Computed example of a mutant assay.
Amino acid sequence: MYEKKIPELLDCGLAVTLKVIGGKWKAWIMTCIMDGVRRPSAIHRVMHAVSPRIINAHLRELEAYGIIYKKIYAETPARVEYWLTEAGESVLPVIQTLEDWGNRHKAYIHRHNASYEEGSCTLLQERS
């Protein structure tokens, strides 16, 4: 497994938050689970633009941080579901605040970002 040469400094609350929910897809995965999309195959269908390998890696990371937990049912075929922990539920308002900020400032950011491409956001607005 890859080990970083420079150790991470996780003494800062912001660094911890970004470590846990930062990245391209973790917030979307968490909102899927919050919305009741709990099985890996269902998460893959909702996030069809993202490689299942990437989604699975993020699920493992979120589980390792204690943000989600995996429930394995003793059935044939085996069934796995993911659930938010109390810590995972507590970060959802942070994600909502970040989305609100992005919605308020996206026109400004788009004007200043030459590489912006028109697209659709499917993170939290699909629930509306």
Rank of each mutant, 00 (worst) to 15 (best):
P7F: 04
E8F: 07
L9T: 08
L18N: 12
K19Q: 11
V20Y: 04
I21P: 07
G23H: 05
K24C: 04
A27D: 04
I29A: 01
M30K: 03
T31Y: 15
I33F: 01
M34H: 08
M34D: 06
G36A: 05
P40A: 05
A42T: 02
I43V: 14
H44E: 13
H44S: 03
M47I: 12
V50S: 02
P52R: 11
P52F: 05
P52I: 07
P52Q: 07
A57H: 12
L59K: 03
E61R: 13
E61S: 13
I67P: 05
I68Y: 07
K71M: 12
K71E: 13
I72R: 15
I72V: 15
I72K: 15
E75K: 14
T76Q: 11
A78F: 08
A78V: 11
A78I: 14
E81W: 03
E81P: 00
Y82C: 02
Y82D: 07
Y82H: 13
E89P: 00
S90D: 15
L92N: 03
I95C: 10
I95T: 06
I95V: 15
L98R: 06
D100N: 12
G102Q: 07
N103G: 07
N103I: 12
A107D: 14
H110A: 13
R111G: 10
H112R: 15
A114S: 08
Y116W: 13
E118I: 11
E118F: 01
G119A: 10
G119H: 12
G119P: 04
C121M: 08
L123P: 01
L124T: 13
R127C: 00
R127I: 04
S128I: 08
S128M: 08
